[in-house]
Amino acid sequence: MNTQTVSASAARAYKSDVKPVWCPGCGDFTVLSAITKAFAELGLPPEQVAVVSGIGCSSRIPAYLNTYGFHGVHGRATALATGLKLARPDLTVVVASGDGDGFSIGGNHFLHACRRNVDLTYIVMDNRVYGMTKGQPSPTTEPDWDNALTPGGTGLRAFNPLVIALASGANFIARGFSGDPVGTARLIVEAIETPGFSFVEVLSPCVTFRPDQRDWRNAVRPAPVQPTGDIGAAARRLMTDDGFNLGVLYVGSRTPYQTHRTAAPVSPSEIEQQFAV
């Protein structure tokens, strides 16, 4: 038979033999599965892929993959991935993050990664909570969500990462849902295939600290619009979005940032001549 149809096995080849520490029921399992499906669909050799992450539940992903990976410090994954991609443009570089890692401690890097538009795919698993530290509010948490660190809720408006991404210059903006693994895999494929900085927010429920998010299944819907390259239309769309529209919401045509390497490098001893008396 045609081996191409063995998609589940092909995807499984991208998984390492390390077993995730996530809680059973966690949305991140599906995101992991969607990432492997996307890699399989694109036929990427595992050694040509690097997955970079920071700190948090979602940032554990690199160890669960059979690609190259970097599990760095909290909030700096996009910066580390930027250095890697600029030094090694031949690699496919994917960044995995969460709402705390990516939007709070890593907020500034998020802005500048969008602005710089290096050819990266940035997958943020958003569960609106810090899981590794036992349930504190993140920038995307609802203002009235009660918790031990900010009793009664933060009282702060939730951050809208898609709007920020658009305003900052991201070239591809999409939202997926972990309960829609096929759709999420497709978004990741498109994100990787689109040149420049691609931002994919994946709503990924936390069954331990946000059991209410099991209801997201009933809230999400395919966005009732086609992808647009019109930044004004995208801005209106994202500003009025309730956070549950799934799909590709913006695809621009910005040229990715690259560092230019001269094809005719000279030796260090040649540039030393400028100092000669």
Binding site: F70, R76, A79, L80, G83, L86, A87, L91, N108, H109
Partner: peptide
Amino acid sequence: AEDELASINMIIGASYG
């Protein structure tokens, strides 16, 4: 880079590569 937090991580990424 956008700040020193980024510059140090960028060079770690490049060197890892």
